[in-house]
């Protein structure tokens, strides 16, 4: 049984055509999957379904054999950690306190226990956040906030990690660090889904690509299989060219 299974998942906002129109896919532990597609293709909605933030209108989303629609939210968040595209605004708490929110799904009492603090410390270290520990979250830059939120998701210690455009605010160095981190997490057996617009980074770093187009899965395969220039042109509406660069790396260019 795969860790994550989507079975003909359909989702529509009220009074609008479906954003997701029957997506079926499966993914296992230790996979790093990039979700790509044009604006409005349903990438974030797909992530929200897996995060349990939205319930499919029909079809199912299963993680570890459990149905998202039938699982209590706290239990679901021990399976899946989601980092949204938009960082929360006006958060008066310190970096440490923000990272500790990742422990809420485990929380029974009013205060965090030793496990919670251990998980927080470990996540802070992984994200190199020690110097920011007592800084107020809202005074950080966009990229720093992104790292704090990712640390909170790591502290959640869930087998599935969902990142919605995590590199939107990152400089090249931090972007490289992020992908290196995702490789480490994959090696630890996590399943990672990343929504991104960076086709090249997706090609270089992910094991698999899910190409979404009009709410359906237009391709599901290795970067080499999924990123065919003809298919990309059909999906994105601009001509794509593919070459082989240094070290045999894929290079994509687009436009006329």
């Amino acid at each position: 049984m795969s860790l994550l299974a989507l079975e003909s998942a359909i989702y529509a906002y009220p009074g609008a055509p479906p954003v997701l129109n029957g997506v079926s896919a499966a993914a296992g532990a230790g996979e790093l999957i990039a979700i790509i597609g044009p604006n409005g293709a349903g990438k974030s909605t797909l992530l929200d379904l897996v995060a349990g933030l939205k319930t499919p209108a029909s079809g199912r989303c299963l993680v570890d054999g459990r149905d998202s629609a039938a699982t209590p939210r706290g239990a679901w968040c021990r399976l899946v950690a989601h980092v949204p595209q938009q960082a929360p605004a006006n958060v008066p708490f310190t970096v440490e306190e923000v990272v500790l929110t990742g422990r809420i799904p485990y929380g029974r009492g009013l205060y965090e226990n030793d496990d919670d603090y251990r998980a927080m410390e470990e996540a802070m270290e992984r994200m190199r956040l020690a110097p920011f520990r007592d800084r107020s979250f809202q005074t950080l830059s966009g990229g720093e906030q992104q790292r704090v939120l990712l640390a909170a998701a790591l502290a959640q210690q869930s087998p599935v990690l969902l990142l919605d455009e995590p590199s939107a605010h990152l400089d090249p160095q931090n972007e490289a660090r992020l992908w290196a981190l995702l490789h480490d997490l994959r090696a630890l057996g996590r399943l990672i889904l990343v929504v991104t617009h960076h086709l090249l980074l997706a090609a270089h770093h992910s094991d698999r690509i899910w190409l979404l187009h009009h709410g359906t899965l237009a391709a599901d395969g290795t970067p080499g299989e999924a990123l065919q220039p003809e298919r990309l042109q059909a999906v994105f509406g601009v001509p794509f060219h593919r070459h082989t660069g240094e070290h045999g790396r894929m290079v994509l260019s687009y436009g006329n």
């Binding site: 995060a51 349990g52 933030l53 939210r73 706290g74 239990a75 679901w76 968040c77 021990r78 950690a81 989601h82 980092v83 949204p84 938009q86 929360p88 605004a89 006006n90 958060v91 008066p92 708490f93 306190e97 923000v98 929110t101 990742g102 809420i104 799904p105 939120l149 909170a152 998701a153 959640q156």
Partner: peptide, 14 residues
Amino acid sequence: NVVSYGDTWAAGRG
């Protein structure tokens, strides 16, 4: 405390 982060973040923490 978590409610002050907004619906999305709170929902993602259960």
